[in-house]
Amino acid sequence: MTAIRTEGLRKEYKDVVAVEGLDLEIEEGELFSLLGVNGAGKTTTVKMLSGLTVPTAGDAEVCGFSVVKEPDRVKGSIDVSMQETAIARKLTVEENIAFYAAMRGHSKEQIEEDKKYVYSVFGLDSVAKRYAGKLSGGWQRKLSVALALISRPKVLFLDEPTLGLDVIARRELWRTIRELKGKMTVILTTHYMEEAEALSDRIGVMKDGKLLFVGTQEEMYASTGKGNVEEAFIEIVTGGERDA
Protein backbone atom coordinates (compact mmCIF):
# COMPACT_ATOMS: atom_id res chain seq x y z
CA MET A 1 0.00 0.00 0.00
CA THR A 2 1.19 3.49 -0.84
CA ALA A 3 1.24 5.94 2.07
CA ILE A 4 2.31 9.01 0.10
CA ARG A 5 2.12 9.76 -3.61
CA THR A 6 3.07 13.16 -5.02
CA GLU A 7 2.52 14.39 -8.56
CA GLY A 8 4.30 17.49 -9.81
CA LEU A 9 4.30 19.04 -6.36
CA ARG A 10 5.59 22.61 -6.56
CA LYS A 11 5.90 25.53 -4.16
CA GLU A 12 6.89 29.06 -5.05
CA TYR A 13 7.50 31.95 -2.65
CA LYS A 14 7.40 35.18 -4.69
CA ASP A 15 10.31 34.70 -7.11
CA VAL A 16 11.85 31.67 -5.33
CA VAL A 17 10.95 28.12 -6.31
CA ALA A 18 11.30 26.15 -3.06
CA VAL A 19 10.13 22.79 -4.45
CA GLU A 20 9.91 21.97 -8.14
CA GLY A 21 7.93 19.15 -9.74
CA LEU A 22 8.25 16.59 -6.96
CA ASP A 23 7.15 13.07 -8.01
CA LEU A 24 7.52 10.53 -5.25
CA GLU A 25 5.93 7.38 -3.82
CA ILE A 26 6.48 6.14 -0.27
CA GLU A 27 5.13 2.81 0.94
CA GLU A 28 3.31 2.15 4.20
CA GLY A 29 5.64 1.30 7.09
CA GLU A 30 8.68 2.66 5.27
CA LEU A 31 11.25 4.94 6.89
CA PHE A 32 12.11 7.39 4.15
CA SER A 33 14.83 10.00 4.58
CA LEU A 34 14.95 13.24 2.65
CA LEU A 35 18.54 14.41 2.47
CA GLY A 36 19.67 17.82 1.38
CA VAL A 37 21.76 20.81 2.31
CA ASN A 38 20.10 23.86 3.91
CA GLY A 39 17.53 25.41 1.55
CA ALA A 40 17.12 22.23 -0.50
CA GLY A 41 13.32 22.26 0.03
CA LYS A 42 13.00 19.48 2.62
CA THR A 43 10.99 21.45 5.18
CA THR A 44 8.75 22.99 2.51
CA THR A 45 8.04 19.47 1.24
CA VAL A 46 7.08 18.34 4.76
CA LYS A 47 4.84 21.40 5.19
CA MET A 48 3.02 20.67 1.93
CA LEU A 49 2.61 16.97 2.71
CA SER A 50 1.26 17.75 6.19
CA GLY A 51 -1.31 20.30 5.00
CA LEU A 52 0.49 23.27 6.57
CA THR A 53 1.34 24.91 3.25
CA VAL A 54 -0.78 24.88 0.10
CA PRO A 55 1.19 23.77 -2.99
CA THR A 56 1.47 26.27 -5.82
CA ALA A 57 0.92 23.43 -8.31
CA GLY A 58 0.55 19.67 -8.30
CA ASP A 59 -0.98 17.55 -5.57
CA ALA A 60 -0.12 14.79 -3.12
CA GLU A 61 -2.12 11.97 -1.61
CA VAL A 62 -1.30 11.19 2.00
CA CYS A 63 -3.09 8.14 3.41
CA GLY A 64 -5.43 8.42 0.42
CA PHE A 65 -6.37 12.07 1.03
CA SER A 66 -5.45 15.02 -1.17
CA VAL A 67 -3.35 17.69 0.56
CA VAL A 68 -5.02 20.29 -1.69
CA LYS A 69 -8.67 19.22 -1.42
CA GLU A 70 -8.75 17.44 1.97
CA PRO A 71 -6.06 19.00 4.18
CA ASP A 72 -8.13 18.45 7.36
CA ARG A 73 -8.40 14.71 6.65
CA VAL A 74 -4.68 14.60 5.96
CA LYS A 75 -4.05 16.27 9.33
CA GLY A 76 -6.22 13.62 10.99
CA SER A 77 -3.93 10.85 9.71
CA ILE A 78 -0.49 12.37 10.28
CA ASP A 79 1.58 14.24 12.78
CA VAL A 80 4.66 16.40 12.54
CA SER A 81 7.66 17.14 14.71
CA MET A 82 9.16 20.31 13.28
CA GLN A 83 12.87 21.07 13.47
CA GLU A 84 12.29 23.62 16.26
CA THR A 85 11.34 22.14 19.62
CA ALA A 86 7.57 22.70 19.94
CA ILE A 87 6.52 22.30 23.56
CA ALA A 88 4.70 24.38 26.19
CA ARG A 89 7.67 25.42 28.29
CA LYS A 90 5.83 26.27 31.51
CA LEU A 91 3.85 23.05 31.55
CA THR A 92 5.24 19.86 33.01
CA VAL A 93 5.99 16.92 30.72
CA GLU A 94 2.81 15.21 31.91
CA GLU A 95 0.77 18.39 31.31
CA ASN A 96 2.26 18.76 27.83
CA ILE A 97 1.11 15.25 26.94
CA ALA A 98 -2.37 15.83 28.41
CA PHE A 99 -2.66 19.21 26.68
CA TYR A 100 -1.65 17.94 23.26
CA ALA A 101 -3.92 14.90 23.59
CA ALA A 102 -6.83 17.19 24.50
CA MET A 103 -6.08 19.33 21.44
CA ARG A 104 -6.33 16.11 19.43
CA GLY A 105 -9.81 15.65 20.89
CA HIS A 106 -8.95 12.73 23.19
CA SER A 107 -11.14 11.91 26.21
CA LYS A 108 -9.82 11.82 29.81
CA GLU A 109 -9.55 8.03 29.65
CA GLN A 110 -7.65 8.22 26.35
CA ILE A 111 -5.31 10.83 27.79
CA GLU A 112 -4.29 8.44 30.59
CA GLU A 113 -3.57 5.80 27.93
CA ASP A 114 -1.62 8.38 25.92
CA LYS A 115 0.60 9.14 28.92
CA LYS A 116 1.38 5.43 29.43
CA TYR A 117 2.10 4.99 25.71
CA VAL A 118 4.43 7.98 25.49
CA TYR A 119 6.21 7.05 28.72
CA SER A 120 6.76 3.50 27.47
CA VAL A 121 8.15 4.56 24.07
CA PHE A 122 10.28 7.50 25.18
CA GLY A 123 10.97 6.80 28.85
CA LEU A 124 9.64 10.21 29.79
CA ASP A 125 8.08 9.00 33.05
CA SER A 126 11.30 9.84 34.92
CA VAL A 127 10.80 13.55 34.11
CA ALA A 128 6.98 13.58 34.03
CA LYS A 129 6.59 16.15 36.82
CA ARG A 130 9.32 18.51 35.62
CA TYR A 131 8.62 21.71 33.71
CA ALA A 132 9.41 21.19 30.02
CA GLY A 133 11.37 24.44 29.83
CA LYS A 134 13.71 23.26 32.59
CA LEU A 135 14.69 20.02 30.83
CA SER A 136 17.94 19.55 28.92
CA GLY A 137 17.89 20.05 25.14
CA GLY A 138 17.86 16.30 24.58
CA TRP A 139 14.85 15.71 26.81
CA GLN A 140 13.01 18.67 25.30
CA ARG A 141 13.53 17.29 21.80
CA LYS A 142 12.44 13.83 22.96
CA LEU A 143 9.24 15.36 24.36
CA SER A 144 8.69 17.34 21.17
CA VAL A 145 8.97 14.18 19.07
CA ALA A 146 6.92 12.18 21.61
CA LEU A 147 3.99 14.61 21.33
CA ALA A 148 3.76 13.79 17.63
CA LEU A 149 3.06 10.14 18.52
CA ILE A 150 0.06 10.86 20.73
CA SER A 151 -2.39 10.76 17.82
CA ARG A 152 -0.92 7.35 16.74
CA PRO A 153 -0.38 8.78 13.24
CA LYS A 154 -0.25 6.60 10.16
CA VAL A 155 2.42 8.91 8.78
CA LEU A 156 4.93 10.69 11.01
CA PHE A 157 7.05 13.56 9.69
CA LEU A 158 10.27 14.19 11.59
CA ASP A 159 11.91 17.38 10.38
CA GLU A 160 15.56 17.42 11.47
CA PRO A 161 14.70 15.59 14.72
CA THR A 162 18.25 15.49 16.08
CA LEU A 163 19.35 18.98 15.08
CA GLY A 164 21.53 20.47 17.81
CA LEU A 165 21.58 17.35 19.99
CA ASP A 166 24.78 15.91 21.45
CA VAL A 167 25.92 12.51 20.25
CA ILE A 168 24.44 10.58 23.19
CA ALA A 169 21.02 12.23 22.91
CA ARG A 170 21.13 11.70 19.14
CA ARG A 171 21.84 8.00 19.48
CA GLU A 172 19.03 7.63 22.03
CA LEU A 173 16.58 9.30 19.67
CA TRP A 174 17.78 7.07 16.81
CA ARG A 175 16.99 4.03 18.96
CA THR A 176 13.47 5.32 19.54
CA ILE A 177 12.95 6.11 15.85
CA ARG A 178 14.17 2.61 14.92
CA GLU A 179 11.50 1.16 17.22
CA LEU A 180 8.86 2.99 15.18
CA LYS A 181 9.94 1.32 11.95
CA GLY A 182 7.20 -0.84 10.49
CA LYS A 183 4.60 0.52 12.93
CA MET A 184 4.01 3.68 10.91
CA THR A 185 5.39 5.43 7.86
CA VAL A 186 8.17 7.80 8.91
CA ILE A 187 9.44 10.64 6.74
CA LEU A 188 12.69 11.95 8.14
CA THR A 189 14.42 15.06 6.87
CA THR A 190 18.02 15.50 7.85
CA HIS A 191 21.35 16.82 6.70
CA TYR A 192 23.23 14.36 8.91
CA MET A 193 24.40 11.64 6.51
CA GLU A 194 25.10 9.10 9.24
CA GLU A 195 21.52 9.55 10.47
CA ALA A 196 20.07 8.66 7.08
CA GLU A 197 22.53 5.78 6.81
CA ALA A 198 21.58 4.38 10.22
CA LEU A 199 17.82 4.66 9.95
CA SER A 200 16.51 4.71 6.38
CA ASP A 201 14.87 2.07 4.22
CA ARG A 202 15.15 4.46 1.26
CA ILE A 203 16.74 7.85 0.73
CA GLY A 204 15.71 10.82 -1.39
CA VAL A 205 18.28 13.51 -2.20
CA MET A 206 17.06 17.07 -2.79
CA LYS A 207 18.92 20.08 -4.11
CA ASP A 208 17.49 23.49 -5.01
CA GLY A 209 13.94 22.16 -4.68
CA LYS A 210 14.48 19.23 -7.03
CA LEU A 211 14.54 15.54 -6.15
CA LEU A 212 17.79 14.28 -7.69
CA PHE A 213 17.79 10.69 -6.46
CA VAL A 214 15.47 8.14 -4.82
CA GLY A 215 16.51 4.66 -3.81
CA THR A 216 18.00 2.37 -1.21
CA GLN A 217 21.50 2.90 0.17
CA GLU A 218 22.78 0.08 -2.03
CA GLU A 219 21.22 1.70 -5.10
CA MET A 220 22.80 4.98 -4.05
CA TYR A 221 26.24 3.39 -3.82
CA ALA A 222 25.76 1.56 -7.13
CA SER A 223 24.67 4.67 -9.03
CA THR A 224 27.53 6.83 -7.71
CA GLY A 225 30.29 4.26 -7.30
CA LYS A 226 30.80 5.37 -3.69
CA GLY A 227 30.85 3.26 -0.54
CA ASN A 228 28.99 5.42 2.00
CA VAL A 229 26.02 7.79 2.09
CA GLU A 230 28.08 10.94 2.61
CA GLU A 231 30.31 10.38 -0.41
CA ALA A 232 27.35 9.25 -2.52
CA PHE A 233 25.35 12.32 -1.44
CA ILE A 234 28.18 14.67 -2.40
CA GLU A 235 28.52 12.93 -5.74
CA ILE A 236 24.78 13.36 -6.42
CA VAL A 237 24.45 17.03 -5.39
CA THR A 238 27.69 18.17 -7.03
CA GLY A 239 27.39 15.94 -10.08
CA GLY A 240 30.94 14.73 -9.42
CA GLU A 241 32.40 18.23 -9.82
CA ARG A 242 33.86 18.20 -6.31
CA ASP A 243 36.03 15.17 -7.03
CA ALA A 244 37.19 16.67 -10.29
Binding site: S50, G51, L52, D72, K75, G76, I78, D79, V80, S81, M82, Q83, E84, T85, A86, I87, A88, Y100, M103, R104, L147, A148, S151
Partner: peptide, 13 residues
Protein backbone atom coordinates in the same frame (compact mmCIF):
# COMPACT_ATOMS: atom_id res chain seq x y z
CA UNK B 1 8.00 32.44 16.99
CA UNK B 2 8.45 28.82 18.06
CA UNK B 3 6.98 25.86 16.18
CA UNK B 4 4.32 25.56 18.90
CA UNK B 5 1.42 27.04 16.90
CA UNK B 6 2.49 25.09 13.81
CA UNK B 7 2.18 21.92 15.85
CA UNK B 8 -1.31 22.92 16.98
CA UNK B 9 -2.38 23.74 13.42
CA UNK B 10 -1.60 20.11 12.57
CA UNK B 11 -4.14 19.15 15.27
CA UNK B 12 -6.80 20.76 13.09
CA UNK B 13 -7.65 23.46 15.65
Amino acid sequence: GSAFLTRLFVCGA
